[in-house]
Design a protein around this nucleic acid. Structure first.
Lengths: 228, 228
DNA sequence: GTTTTCAAGATTGTGTACAATTTTGCGCAC
DNA sequence: GTGCGCAAAATTGTACACAATCTTGAAAAC
């Protein structure tokens, strides 16, 4: 997108490009990620592509089928529930910690972030809005100053993006960052318990806006349905 | 060790070998992991070695310094605290869930595990005992049937092994798997709250058996001290 | 007409070679 | 004698080439 230089991408840069594309739903679950294809698109060698794909695989963003290639991951219903259970375990407490050490700069940063979210929404760029919405949660983890938990949450956010792509029921207005506004308010007041509670409810809202009920089977990619 | 076949190792196998060596403290924090060196030891190409090292790096078991090579990670005091805070957040609840769905087979498996721990301790094989002690926690996460959280705990256990290597104060008897016995008992009774409590205390005991107090600086590797 | 088999094509997994960067050792100046 | 600088050696990062495995298509047998 914003890549105008002809300098060859490094592994980390390619990783970031692919990660962003997945976050913004330009790459949807089940999409095959052919190594030669990506290599030619970005003008890098397959070695670099493989390295980036392995990293994405360890973050559970792509699934590696032995001798069959890499595909954008398709979290099952079970995995989807697991991801949100893990988030429910980690994020409220993290928001609590974050509130207790929020600085004025943090608030300013979050406000800018939320403005960008609103802007993306207004522009109808749902992919961008979703990405920013996720980054908001990561930002809170960063404020909590817990890099280990932040890394976990980052992974969970990424996977949540895949889950949204698969199980979002369109009738609900997903990214109403109303909840984010309230969270910033709680953080500004350094009100740990309120931030905890708000985050807990926010996650519950997220889950209910998804359709995680048992379906007999939900093969969203024709290709995959035929493969079996 | 038990590698008698001349078949070339695959990436995952090499990863497992190195991971185990780190868990068992045969590789200690700060050790340089030269690519050519490992490649010749295991008779594989550097490609395979790099792949395994990248995977270990993403699990935070090795640190990759750009153009300077891979080293067995040296968690800082701060990281050490973070790891155990994350464990305190994840494991008690996971033990709670596990207790509610423990089967007879699970108990049998855990009992075998504990016996192996005792045996390794009796044999004075502390590395092995430490490894098994970690596996016990992972096994509980597996019983809880939460693969996502299990993956997180697995990583935290691995890093805990590094932390023990760095910050264990020898005067305490580390791996007294007394606590493990009690946990198995709680699981056998399907007593969730008790398992939760036991796990919480067990983790507290672990932390206090480490020396995570602030030191002005704790450069455990001469090399690293000189490098700065 | 359907099923099975086999070969050709395509794609991934691994090994090797080259380029870039860093480290290191010696020499020289001060 | 100490400090700086440059060149040689070593090590990592990337690109390329080959081997192994899987998919695909058609042809032949039933």
């Amino acid at each position: 997108m914003t890549k105008l230089t002809t300098a060859p991408l490094t592994t980390e840069q390619l990783f970031a490009q692919l990660e962003l594309a997945i976050h913004e739903h330009r790459l949807t679950p089940g999409t095959k990620l052919g190594e030669d294809e990506i290599a030619s698109i970005y003008s890098v060698s397959r070695t670099t592509v493989r390295s980036a794909l392995q990293a994405l695989s360890l973050q559970r963003l792509v699934e590696h089928k032995r001798n069959r290639g890499a595909y954008v991951a398709q979290p099952t219903l079970r995995e989807a529930r697991e991801v949100f259970e893990a988030r429910a375990l980690l994020e409220p407490r993290t928001a609590h910690s974050a509130a207790e050490r929020t600085t004025a700069e943090d608030i300013a940063k979050l406000q800018v972030h939320i403005d960008a979210e609103h802007e993306a929404m207004a522009a109808g760029n749902h992919g961008r809005a979703l990405y920013l919405s996720g980054q908001f949660h990561i930002e809170i983890a960063r404020i909590a100053d817990q890099s280990t938990i932040e890394a976990f949450i980052t992974q969970l956010i990424s996977r949540s993006s895949l889950i949204v792509a698969l199980y979002w029921q369109r009738r609900t207005a997903m990214c109403e960052s109303h909840a984010h506004d309230a969270l910033v308010s709680a953080l500004a007041d350094q009100d740990g318990p309120r931030a905890d509670e708000l985050m807990r409810n926010h996650l519950l809202d997220l889950v209910t806006s998804l359709d995680l009920r048992n379906k007999t089977s939900a093969p969203l990619s024709l290709k995959d349905a035929l493969a079996q």
